[in-house]
Each structure stands twice: as C-alpha cells, then as structure tokens.
Simulated assay, not measured.
Amino acid sequence: MSALHQSWPMPSAPRPIVVIGTGGIVKDAHLPAYRKAGFTVAGVYDTDRARAADLAREWSIPTVFGTLEEAAAADAVFDVAAPPVAHAAILSALPEGATVLLQKPMGLDLVAATAIRQVCRDRSLIASVNFQLRYSAMMLAVADAIAQGRLGELVEIEVHLNLVTPWHLFPHLIPNPRVEIVSHSIHYLDTIRALAGDPKGVFARSYGHPSSRLADTRTTAILDYGETLRATLSINHHHDFGRRFQDASFRVEGSEGAAMVKLGLLLDYPTGEPDELWLAAKGGPWEQIPLQGAWFPDAFVGPMANLQRFAAGEDATLATHVEDAWRTMALVEACYRAATAPATPIPTE
C-alpha cells in the first residue's frame, strides 16, 4: 500500500517574505511555520510600529518598515496578515503583478470578496488566500487517500465540533454581524470543497449563545451534493462541561473505506492536543496514520510553498487562488442566506 502525501513540495528557490500585519496569528503560526520551512522573512510592517518592532526583535527580522509604501517597495512575496477589512486597500498599494498571500477570510462577506478579487484582477496579482486546513498533513493525506481510490465513492463527510472555544481571545469579532461561519467553519467548508468539489446548494442555521456577546457561535449546515454524498457540519463552541464528551472530528466515508480526523488543535485551544488520522478499509481494522506535522503551525507552510512554486512556474495549480477562494466565500454567503430563510411549517392536521 503506497504512502500518503502529507506535505506540499518546497520551492526550489524560495523568495524572501514581507509580512504586513503583526497580530497573534503571525506570531503563533506564520513565523514559526516559515522558520521551520527555512523561508526568509525580510521585514514586517504594521500600523502599530511598536508591536511590529517587538515582533521583529523576537524573531530576528532585520527590517521594520515605517509605512505601507516602504513595505510594498520591497522585492519580496507579500504575506498580508491584516484584518480582512483592510485587504483591498493593502492590495491596491502593492506593485502590479506582485505575489501575495492573504490571511483568511477573503473579506467578511461576498461583496467584499468580490471587491478583493477585482483588485487582484485589475493589478494582475498572483494572489491566494491562506485557507491552510486543506494544506495540513492530515487533510492532504485524506485527499491523497481519496485520489488513490482507498475510500471508493464518497458517501459521507461530517464535521462535528462540541467543545469550548475561548472567544475572549478574539474581541475584534464582537462588532461583526457574522462570526462563526465566516471566521471558523469557513475552514471546513473550504476543505470539503477541496475534497468533494462545489455543492449545488446549502441548508444552514447559525445561532448565538446566552454566554456570548458574539452574533453567532453555533452552526448546523447540510451541503447538497445530490443523492449519494451526505455532507454536514454540526458546530457547538460552548460545550463547557469538561473534556469527556468534547469532540473535534472530521469524518470522511466512502463505499470502500473511511477516514477519521481528530482536530486536536481545537481541544483546549490554543494549547491543543495532537492531531490524529485514522483509516479503515471496508471490513478491515482501523489504522492510525503517523502525521508529519500539525495544523498549527505546520499547515501554514503549504500555502506559501504553493504560492511561490506557482509564481515560479513549478506548480501548475494554485490551490487557494483568489478565484477559488471566492468560491469558498460564495459558499459562506449561501450559508448565511440560507440561515435567514423561513423554516417549512409543520402541518397541523
């Protein structure tokens, strides 16, 4: 039985990276991943100069740019890790034809995503979005198992979360009218698209919670893939009753085999537990597949490697190109629109 592909190949001649935005995700994921991969971070920029300088000292980054214009003048690949509301303006300041990775989401709604896509088109940017879950070792392995035919015809994809997410770590989400799907479940929607393609439609509901000031933190969704493949999400971020029945799983079943993924990062986030991948052939035992990396930070290597290889002509496809990322945003938009649709009344007679 052949081994499963778990990592993206590296560019043969990596270019230096300039990071725009120095928030927690950069410190916790981008920079650790880039150091591990051997990428050079040539400089950072943030509107908060002091924060950028502190991060540069901590990570031995040689340059802290004073303005966005100075950062944009660098001969580098740009990693835009700023809030999505700033993406269009930052992209407009970059050189035409620049190579750029955008932190997800691609705007907060489809209108913003469409505007971002248009800026990329107008400026001929080689741009992708950092939907990194599909690049994780566990999900690349699942995708390879599907491609090898180990699972047969797909019949089930289920994402099930029942856990506690420390939303207090993300106070910037409080004013947003949309939270859970566009900021969290977007990862699962994008990964399901990577595994199964685009659904024909969606049924969805999102809910708030009495303990939270956020607009929505729980989601139920069914993706319509026709008569054979059932794809569902059941997401609850408020199961605050101990670890025993908490769960963070991604289940993929086919006619000939099945895969179970444990999203360990989400259990006791941000400390997390180890990710896990288990495979079983029909009629056979479950086998745990050793993983070559974790979702955080290792999966953040893949989007940058794919982007640089695509820009250099080494990859024929940019998996999370802004054009493909727009399709993920369209699915997010469809979920929110479905959430406002009236339920079918129950007959009374």
Rank of each mutant, 00 (worst) to 15 (best):
W167S: 07
A343K: 09
R244M: 12
A231Y: 06
Y207R: 12
L173M: 14
H30D: 05
H237E: 14
T67Q: 05
A56E: 00
D54L: 11
I20V: 15
V111E: 14
G23E: 02
L266G: 07
I181R: 08
R243A: 13
G254R: 05
R243T: 12
V100T: 12
G66C: 04
G43Q: 03
R178D: 10
L151A: 03
F65H: 15
I25G: 00
A56N: 03
F39P: 02
V77C: 01
S60T: 12
V100M: 02
V64D: 01
G197S: 10
V64E: 00
T22E: 02
P166T: 11
A52W: 06
H321E: 14
A72I: 04
W286E: 11
M304D: 06
L331I: 09
A81F: 11
L331G: 04
D198Y: 03
A338C: 06
P83R: 07
E256Y: 07
T217K: 01
R193W: 04
H5E: 13
A73E: 08
V64Q: 01
M329G: 05
E256N: 14
L331N: 05
G149P: 06
V301F: 09
A341H: 10
H209Y: 06
A33Q: 09
A86L: 13
S60I: 02
F250P: 01
E70Y: 00
N236I: 08
L108T: 05
W326E: 11
A215D: 04
T63C: 04
L266R: 03
F65P: 00
L94H: 02
P270F: 11
G293A: 09
L265C: 01
L94M: 08
D46C: 06
F300S: 07
L94Q: 01
L169N: 08
K200Y: 09
I174K: 13
S12T: 15
R218P: 02
R57W: 00
H5T: 15
E273W: 13
K104G: 00
P303Y: 05
A215Q: 10
A204T: 04
E349W: 12
G254H: 07
S136N: 04
P84R: 00
S7D: 06
G283V: 04
F39S: 10
S136K: 03
G302S: 12
G43C: 06
T63K: 11
I222Q: 10
A73Q: 12
R15E: 13
T344N: 02
V301S: 10
W8R: 06
P210N: 03
Q103W: 08
G197Y: 11
I186L: 15
H239T: 08
A127T: 06
H209Q: 02
V301N: 07
A53D: 12
A343P: 00
T232K: 09
A74K: 00
I20N: 00
V77E: 00
E58S: 13
I157C: 09
